[in-house]
Each structure stands twice: as structure tokens, then as C-alpha cells.
């Protein structure tokens, strides 16, 4: 399996002196997250009959994939001190357009994925253009477009569900068709996208510029960075990833698409990004952390169910994790300012 659409960064970087100032390979937050996830997995493995079996871990990774995938784009956006709260509604639009087209025309896998990615990128373009050139905070803009997308999506649904979805996207699903050599395709693609984004943020000039924009936009502009196209690009990338994630969600859903698809996913994505150690104030963040954040959230949800605890406890644990992540971020920021 291989993704067909990727954000190919312009490789203009590689200034030799830059190597010295590159951040360390993994951040403290990532090490902490890996530790927490490892402890949780071992504990759950001991306490439940089947948590550490393929039948449990693989579906968990499949559930992580769409959230982490959109989380990659969201991380780029939040690094520039922006945010996109319209991704839930954008999922709805891309998935309904794609699934209706599949039902009507029976298009095969690759065109269906391309269609979904193109629709998502188009929605991202709308967001990016308004945010980059609108001079209004991204939360307001994307809140507006979220309602707009919601409206568009509902019009496509036309008071009905999309029934009789073909099994085209089963390759991204939870079942046997969704795995090769035991590895879920959707998760493998997500890992590849995370790796590309990790490289982009670390080594590409424009990737480094995102941090500069989020740290201080005025300073970045005065330093000669073309801020607006850069911001626009982060929203388009996120939109394209929303399109791909919508294919994953259709694949792991049922043979019927309901208009509740995507509802509340923006919060799940932002939670994964924040738990992953990306500063909501901008200027700092990692995509590896976002992937780990998404895995942690899904581990908690699955763990609570497998332990037989009341479902609402998973909300509690996720809430605690978000507050802890934001708290350590603020403490870190303070100590950085003092020193």
C-alpha cells in the first residue's frame, strides 16, 4: 500500500550550519508518552485476557490512523499558532461526496482516494486562504467554515443516509482485507505520513519556517519569510489529509454512511496534538508526539472498555491527559523565559 498524494516539500534546505541548531531527535514529551503507553500496555496486558493480542492491538491502531493522520496536518497548523476546528465538518463533506460517487459509479480504489483527497484539499484551500489573508484569528474563520461545510455536507446527504457502500475501502478497514503481513494498511500509511512530516519539519527550510511563524509572525516576516503562502499551505495539507482520513473512516465504518460521520472528530484530533506536546500557543510541536498522543487516547478508550469500567471514565482520563500536557507546556515555557 502506498499513498498516492503527498505533500512533497521543496527541498531547498540542507544548510550545513543548520545541523548544529537542530533540535534533538525526540523531545522529552515524546519520551514521557512512550513510557506511559508502554506502562499502560503492559498493565492492560496483565489485567485483561486479550489486550496484548493482535486481535486487540491491530483494531486499536486502525482506530488511531484517521485521528493521527489529520493530527499531522493539525500539528503543522498549530505550530504556526493557528487552529482548524472545521476538520470534523470537512470529514463529513469529503466522506459523503466520496461515498455517493462510489455508490453511483462504482469507481475503484485509487480514483476514489484521489477524489476524496482533492475535495479535502479544496476545503483546506478555502480555510487557508481566509486564514492567511483574512487577518482574523483562525479559530473564528474555521468555526465559520465548519458551519458552512456542515451545511454543504447536509445538502449532499439530502435527508438520507448513503446505503449499500461497496467494499472498496475495506483495504483501510479493521478486517482481514485491511492488513498485509498482519500490518493494517491505514496505520502503515499514517506512519509513512508522520515520517515525511517529521523530516519536513526538521530538515526542510519551509518546515523550519513554520516554527518561526508560530514563534513570532512579525519577526518571521521581517526575516524575509513569505508567511501567507506558508500558512495557506498548512491548511491545504490538512485538508488533503482529511480527505485521506475520510477514506479510512469509511473503511472502518459500516456499509451505511450517516450524517453524524465526523461529528466531534476535530476535538479528538486537537486532543491528540496537545497531548503530543505541541504548544497550543504555536512555535513548538512534533508530529511524532501527535501520533503518540492519538495512540494514548485510543489506548485509554480501549483499556476502559476492556477493563469493564464505565465508558465515561475514558473522557475523564483524556481530560486529565490534556490538562497535564498543557500544564507541563506552560511550566516549560515559563522556565524557558526565566533562563
Amino acid at each position: 500500500m502506498r499513498t498516492t498524494e503527498k505533500s512533497r516539500p521543496q527541498v531547498t534546505a540542507g544548510i550545513p550550519v543548520a545541523k548544529k541548531i537542530l533540535p534533538s531527535l525526540v523531545t522529552g514529551q515524546e519520551v514521557v508518552l512512550i513510557g506511559i503507553i508502554a506502562v499502560l500496555w503492559i498493565l492492560l496486558g496483565l489485567l485483561t485476557p486479550a489486550f496484548l493480542t493482535a486481535g486487540s492491538i491491530l483494531p486499536l491502531l486502525v482506530a488511531v490512523a484517521p485521528i493521527a493522520l489529520i493530527g499531522v496536518g493539525m500539528t503543522l497548523i498549530i505550530i504556526t499558532a493557528g487552529i482548524d476546528v472545521s476538520v470534523g465538518a470537512a470529514i463529513m463533506v469529503t466522506s459523503v461526496v466520496t461515498s455517493q460517487t462510489m455508490v453511483a459509479t462504482g469507481i475503484p480504489l485509487i480514483p476514489a482516494v484521489l477524489l476524496s483527497v482533492a475535495v479535502g484539499a479544496l476545503l483546506g484551500l478555502v480555510n487557508g486562504y481566509l486564514v492567511a489573508y483574512g487577518k482574523i484569528h483562525a479559530i473564528i474563520i474555521t468555526f465559520g467554515t465548519a458551519n458552512l461545510f456542515q451545511f454543504i455536507g447536509l445538502r449532499f446527504f439530502g435527508s438520507s443516509t448513503v446505503n449499500g457502500l461497496p467494499d472498496t475501502f475495506d483495504v483501510f478497514g479493521r478486517g482481514e482485507a485491511g492488513r498485509t503481513f498482519g500490518i493494517p494498511h491505514s496505520f502503515a500509511i499514517t506512519v509513512i505520513v508522520v515520517a515525511l512530516a517529521w523530516w519536513y519539519l526538521r530538515h526542510a527550510a519551509s518546515g523550519r519556517h513554520l516554527f518561526a511563524v508560530g514563534g513570532n509572525e512579525t519577526a518571521a516576516r521581517l526575516a524575509g519569510i513569505k508567511v501567507k503562502p506558508l500558512i495557506l499551505r498548512t491548511y491545504v495539507i490538512t485538508g488533503a489529509l482529511v480527505g485521506l482520513a475520510a477514506c479510512f473512516l469509511i473503511g472502518q465504518g459500516t456499509s451505511t454512511l450517516e450524517q453524524s460521520v465526523g461529528a466531534g472528530r476535530e476535538l479528538a484530533v486537537i486532543a491528540a496534538v496537545v497531548i503530543g506536546g505541541t504548544s497550543i500557543l504555536g512555535g513548538r510541536g512534533t508530529v511524532l508526539g501527535t501520533l503518540l498522543g492519538a495512540i494514548l487516547v485510543q489506548t485509554v478508550t480501549s483499556g476502559v472498555t476492556q477493563m469493564g469500567w464505565p465508558s465515561q471514565l475514558s473522557d475523564f482520563f483524556v481530560g486529565v491527559a490534556i490538562i497535564a500536557a498543557v500544564g507541563t507546556d506552560i511550566l516549560r515555557e515559563r522556565s524557558r523565559r526565566k533562563s
Binding site: A50, T305, G308
Partner: peptide, 18 residues
């Protein structure tokens, strides 16, 4: 009211109770 979440939870239930 979430199909995907219902499916994920049902998977967890089957794992928790062999």
C-alpha cells in the same frame, strides 16, 4: 451516536470477554 466508535467498542468487548 457514533458508528465507528460502536464498532471499536464491540471489538474491545470481544477481546475482553473471549
Amino acid at each position: 451516536e457514533d458508528q465507528a466508535k460502536a464498532a471499536a467498542m464491540a471489538t474491545d468487548l470481544m477481546n475482553a470477554h473471549p
